[in-house]
C-alpha cells in the first residue's frame, strides 16, 4: 500500500528507472491518474454538498440556536430588543398548568395516533396491493386525506363535526340513538377523540403508501413457497410479511409520530386548543404564546421541549430499524 507511485511527487523521481527496465510502465501512470480522479472526487463531494449545508446552517441551525437564545431572553413582539432573562421564561412555563396539559396531550395524541396509524396503515396497505377492479379509483380516494392541505381537510372535518349541523349527529338522531347533539368539539373527551381521529385519518394513507413499498419489496417466491407449504393468510402475515417488513413499518411509525407530534394545524383549526385547553399541544401552545400572545421568549421555551422528545423517539426507532436490518 506504500507504493511510491501513489505519491505523485515521489512518483516522478522513481518511475524513470522502472520504465527503462520493466515493460509494465503503465500501472504507475494509471494509479496516478486514478489518484488524481479521487482527489477531484473529494472536491466534487464538497462542492455538491456545500449548497445544501450552507442553506441548512443558515436557515435551520442558526434559527435553532437563536430559538434557544430567545428562550433565555425577554424578547416580545412589542419589544424586540434582546435582554438576558435567565431561566425566567422556563420558570413561567413550568408554573403554568397549561404547559403540563399540553405536554401530556402531545404525548398522548402522538402515542395513540401512531399506534392506530401503524395498524390501520398496515391493513390499508394490504388492501391496496390486492388485485381488484377499480383499484385506481380506490387508491385515488384513499390518497385524498394525505394530499390535501391540512388546513383545508381539517375545515372539512370542522363542518363534519359542527355543533348543530353535523351529519354524524343527524344519522345518530335519525337512528334514535341520541336526542341532543353530541357537541363533538365542545366536550373535552370528545374533542380529544376528534383531534386524534383527524390525525389518524390524515396520516394512515401515508403510512399505507410507505408500507406498500415494503410489501412490494418482499420476493414473490417467499410468499409462494409459504403458500405451497400450506401456510394460511394469517400465518403468512405474522410469520413472514410482518417480520420481513418490520424496518419499513418502523419507518412508517416514525413518519406518523413526527407528523403528529409537530403538527399544530389540526388543533389550531379544529379546536384552537379548546375547550379550556383540553386539546392544547406544545406546538399550538407555543404558537399562541409566541406569535398571538407576542411573548417570543416563552413561546421559544415551550417549543424547545419538542426537540429532545422527538430526537429520543427518532433515535430509538432508527436503532430498532438498524438492529432488525443486521439480524
Amino acid at each position: 500500500m506504500t507504493d511510491p507511485a501513489l505519491y505523485p511527487t515521489h512518483g516522478q523521481s522513481v518511475s524513470p528507472p522502472e520504465v527503462t527496465g520493466v515493460p509494465h510502465a503503465s500501472p504507475p501512470v494509471d494509479l496516478r491518474e486514478r489518484r488524481r480522479l479521487a482527489d477531484r472526487d473529494g472536491l466534487l463531494a464538497w462542492l455538491f454538498l456545500l449548497p445544501s449545508v450552507v442553506y441548512i446552517v443558515a436557515l435551520v441551525a442558526i434559527p435553532f440556536f437563536l430559538a434557544i437564545a430567545f428562550s433565555f431572553s425577554d424578547v416580545t413582539a412589542g419589544d424586540p430588543s434582546f435582554d438576558w432573562a435567565g431561566l425566567r421564561n422556563y420558570q413561567n412555563v413550568f408554573d403554568d398548568p397549561v404547559f403540563w396539559q399540553s405536554l401530556r396531550n402531545t404525548i398522548v395524541f402522538t402515542a395513540v395516533s401512531m399506534l392506530l396509524i401503524v395498524v390501520l396503515g398496515k391493513v390499508l396497505a394490504n388492501i391496496l396491493i390486492a388485485d381488484f377492479h377499480g383499484k385506481w379509483l380506490v387508491r385515488f380516494l384513499v390518497l385524498l386525506p394525505w394530499t390535501t392541505p391540512v388546513a383545508l381537510s381539517t375545515i372539512a372535518w370542522l363542518w363534519l363535526l359542527d355543533s348543530v349541523f353535523s351529519p354524524i349527529d343527524w344519522v345518530l338522531r335519525e337512528l334514535g340513538l341520541i336526542d341532543v347533539n353530541m357537541y363533538w368539539l365542545g366536550k373535552p373527551d370528545l374533542a380529544i377523540g376528534s383531534v386524534i381521529v383527524v390525525h389518524v385519518w390524515r396520516l394512515v394513507p401515508l403510512a399505507a403508501v410507505i408500507m406498500m413499498a415494503g410489501l412490494v419489496a418482499i420476493p414473490k417466491d417467499v410468499q409462494e413457497a409459504a403458500s405451497v407449504d400450506g401456510a394460511g393468510f394469517w400465518r403468512r402475515m405474522f410469520e413472514i410479511t410482518i417480520p420481513l417488513t418490520m424496518p419499513i413499518i418502523a419507518v412508517a411509525a416514525l413518519f406518523g409520530a413526527v407528523l403528529t407530534f409537530t403538527d399544530m394545524a389540526v388543533v389550531y383549526v379544529l379546536t384552537r386548543g379548546g375547550p379550556t385547553n383540553s386539546t392544547q399541544v406544545l406546538a399550538s401552545w407555543a404558537f399562541f404564546r409566541g406569535i398571538e400572545g407576542g411573548d417570543v421568549g416563552q413561546g421559544a421555551a415551550i417549543a424547545l421541549f419538542l426537540f429532545p422528545l422527538l430526537l429520543a423517539a427518532a433515535i430509538a426507532i432508527l436503532r430498532a430499524v438498524r438492529r432488525m436490518d443486521v439480524s
Binding site: 430559538a67 413561546g299 417549543a303 426537540f307
Partner: peptide, 23 residues
C-alpha cells in the same frame, strides 16, 4: 453527514418559526 441531514428533518417548524420570522 447523512445522519445529520436526516435529523434536520426532525427539527419541527413549530420550533423554528419564532426565530425564522426574524430571518
Amino acid at each position: 453527514m447523512a445522519i445529520a441531514i436526516f435529523f434536520v428533518y426532525l427539527v419541527p417548524p413549530t420550533l423554528l418559526f419564532l426565530s425564522l420570522s426574524r430571518v
